[in-house]
Each structure stands twice: as structure tokens, then as C-alpha cells.
């Protein structure tokens, strides 16, 4: 098995360090799904956020289709994002629910130089608010802000208005220059951390503690 060089459970292994170096620090694992028409730069945004690079080499099996990054928000909560890319082609639209099922966060991306990408983003937002879990935090993101002067078709106000009417976070970004990309994710993380501060969310992953195992012994 050639791909088994790295730890087998890289997928979602419990962070061993997390259990040790921060007994009172909370760690949350959040599945985040990227939705948007093909070609709007969903995965470029994620790549930019994860590595700070637009097109760096990937070592993971499926490149930027699945990425992870942990960030710290206030009150010492660590949020680990599992970022799921989706296929944006129209013909695959009906498959989206399989991907956003159980995701507490979604980033819906459109291209500010494309009207159709904005319409499709609106359709996704409607679908998410109707079908996904009611707690889902959605960020609407207008990508390719670096091309605003030459090719903008969707005014910032339109995005802003649609977002505020639907209770979404809104940012215009450029995956190419990196502008505002980190903000999208830090704001999402902050909102999720604030939203679920009472220990109730099912997405909390408790790393099994080594110390506890020792004490456990044979308690029968």
C-alpha cells in the first residue's frame, strides 16, 4: 500500500497533542463544506487558507478536495476544520446533500465576474437553509475580487444585501492575492465557538485520554 506512509488515521485521528497540552482548552472538529459553481475557485480559497499559497504542491491523496486546518479562537478553543470540496457542475447538483449532511459550516462561493455563479450560489443558500441542519453557519463569499476593476458583474451591495436578508456572513475575497481569505474562516470559527459554548454540540470530539485509560483499569 503505497499511500500508507503517513499515519493511517490522518483522516480524522484524535489530536494526541491536544489531549496533553491543554487540559482545559476545548478542541472542536468542524466539517465545512464548500459549495459553488465549477470554476469559481472554491478549492483555491481553501488552499489559500490552509497553506497561504495559491497553488502549492499537495501531498494528500485528493489534493485540495479535502483539506484540514486548525485555528485558535478566543477563549482558547481550537477549531479544526475538515474542509470538503464539492463538484459544482449543474448535473451533480442533486448530490450536494450527501456532502453537506452533518456539516455545521458551509462556505458558498460565487465569482463576482459571473452572474450565473451568483444565481447558483443563491440557490445553494436557499437549499441549505431549508434542508441542512438548522444550526448551520453559512458564509457567502464573492471570489476574484482582484478582478473587480475589469470584470465585476455583481456589485458588492447585491452580495451584502442577499447575505443580510438570509442571515449569512459575507466577504469578498481573492484567492489569487489572498485578500480576506483568512477572515472568512476565522469569522466562521468565532461564530461557531460562540454559538456552541455550552457543551452540547454533537460535533465535539473527545480525544480518548491516555491518563484516563490507565486509571480505568479493570473496573468490573
Amino acid at each position: 500500500m503505497s499511500s500508507a506512509k503517513r499515519p493511517n488515521g490522518r483522516a480524522s485521528g484524535p489530536p494526541v497533542g491536544g489531549a496533553r497540552n491543554g487540559p482545559e482548552g476545548k478542541s472542536k472538529q468542524i466539517k465545512l463544506v464548500l459549495l459553488g459553481e465549477s470554476g469559481v475557485g472554491k478549492s483555491s480559497i481553501a488552499l489559500r487558507f490552509v497553506r497561504g499559497e495559491f497553488n502549492e504542491n499537495g501531498e494528500a491523496t485528493i489534493g485540495a478536495a479535502y483539506l484540514t486546518k486548525t485555528i485558535n479562537v478566543q477563549n482558547s478553543t481550537a477549531i479544526k476544520f475538515d474542509i470538503w470540496d464539492t463538484a459544482g457542475q449543474e448535473r451533480y447538483h442533486s448530490l450536494a446533500p450527501m456532502y453537506y449532511r452533518g456539516a455545521p459550516a458551509a462556505v458558498v462561493v460565487y465569482d463576482i465576474t459571473s452572474q450565473t455563479s451568483f444565481s447558483r450560489a443563491q440557490a445553494w443558500v436557499k437549499e441549505l437553509t431549508q434542508q441542512a441542519n438548522s444550526q448551520i453557519v453559512i458564509a457567502l463569499v464573492g471570489n476574484k475580487a482582484d478582478m473587480a476593476s475589469e470584470g465585476r458583474v455583481i456589485p458588492t451591495e447585491d452580495g451584502k444585501e442577499f447575505a443580510s436578508n438570509n442571515g449569512l456572513m459575507f466577504t469578498e475575497v481573492s484567492a489569487k492575492t489572498g485578500m480576506n481569505v483568512d477572515d472568512v474562516f476565522t469569522n466562521l470559527a468565532a461564530k461557531i465557538a460562540a454559538q456552541s459554548s455550552p457543551e452540547s454540540n454533537s460535533t465535539t470530539v473527545r480525544p480518548t485520554n491516555v491518563e484516563r485509560t490507565e486509571k480505568g483499569g479493570c473496573a468490573c
Binding site: M1, S2, S3, S38, G39, K42, S43, S44, L47, N55, E56, N57, G58, T61, I62, G63, A64, A65, D85, T86, A87, G88, Q89, Y92
Partner: peptide, 28 residues
């Protein structure tokens, strides 16, 4: 997982470059 890495290997061998996938390309 191995199937995906075989796809990547095939593409990289043929195109001679490191392939950073996005789902738009990979899914089909």
C-alpha cells in the same frame, strides 16, 4: 483511498507534474 491515489499517480505520470485536485475535476 488507494483508487484515488492510483488516479493521481496516473495523471501525474502522464502530465509529468504534481496534481492538486479540486472536486470539479476529480469527481468526473
Amino acid at each position: 483511498q488507494k483508487t484515488f491515489s492510483e488516479i493521481t499517480k496516473t495523471v501525474e505520470e502522464s502530465m509529468g507534474d504534481v496534481q492538486v485536485w479540486c472536486m470539479d475535476d476529480l469527481f468526473p
